[in-house]
Write a protein that binds this DNA or RNA. Structure first.
Lengths: 132, 132
DNA sequence: CTGAATCCGATAAGATACTG
DNA sequence: CAGTATCTTATCGGATTCAG
């Protein structure tokens, strides 16, 4: 059974649960990390703990608002650890939890696919644009 | 080198490209399939070709508008094939392309992780909610 | 049956200014 | 340094209606 068949079989079990949020993991997962920044921040933290301002520099076009919000969600989901040292000025360091590190395995798989096949996706789009 | 280190190293190469959209595959990928429906539809099509109305039934809470729009994007990206048979009434069948099937491999990895660890994520959220 | 077109509300997300 | 608060704009996505 290849991955496509396995995925198809998986989908059919979800139907039996009627995609109940608490049991349908895809929905629950994508609602949380399917946004523009979550995966990128997890990638940034994979290289090691980073402070707030360091993350802001690493991901150039994220606003402070979105950075804070996304980190809060990742922290609430148990993927990221937030450590505050009560110095003056304050120093806050973010790092991956063991759960967050376990997530880097499938995340790396996704990114490997993207880097290997993204050219094909772009080509498909261009071919379609040319046809229109 | 484990996945976390590999991912961290990967991230650092993206910085050198300044996350240029055309070369940063994550951005390009997530902009397309990071929405609410794309991955779910790819899962639904993994079990085999499906007609438009069949997909609408398989994914109960998607509107026709979003179904059409999402399928069009997946088609434009070369992940899904759209076949129209000029009967009356018209019959349109969607199926995964070879590129789409290759994507089911990392997608299955992501879903495996979600099903294995989603309980931990939920628990983390509840613990946080209880603390607040 | 398979869409296209339009309208509209909800949410996401950027910019800016301010705080301990 | 590490946020918060507020405002505003942009986009998402649902409901409805119409068409080939």
């Amino acid at each position: 059974m290849d991955a496509t068949e396995a995925l198809g079989a998986r989908f059919e079990t979800w139907q039996q649960f009627e995609f109940d949020e608490s049991r349908c993991a895809v929905r629950g997962l994508l609602d949380r990390i399917g946004d523009r920044w979550s995966m990128l921040l997890l990638c940034a933290l994979a290289a090691g703990p980073r402070r707030f301002s360091a993350l802001a520099r690493l991901v150039p076009d994220i606003s402070k608002r979105m950075l804070t919000q996304t980190l809060r969600i990742l922290e609430a989901d148990g993927l990221v650890h937030r450590e505050v040292r009560p110095t003056v000025p304050p120093s806050v360091t973010y790092s991956l939890t063991p759960l967050g590190r376990s997530f880097t395995v499938p995340l790396l798989g996704l990114i490997d696919w993207a880097e290997a096949h993204f050219a094909q996706v772009v080509e498909a789009r261009e071919r379609r644009a040319a046809a229109a």
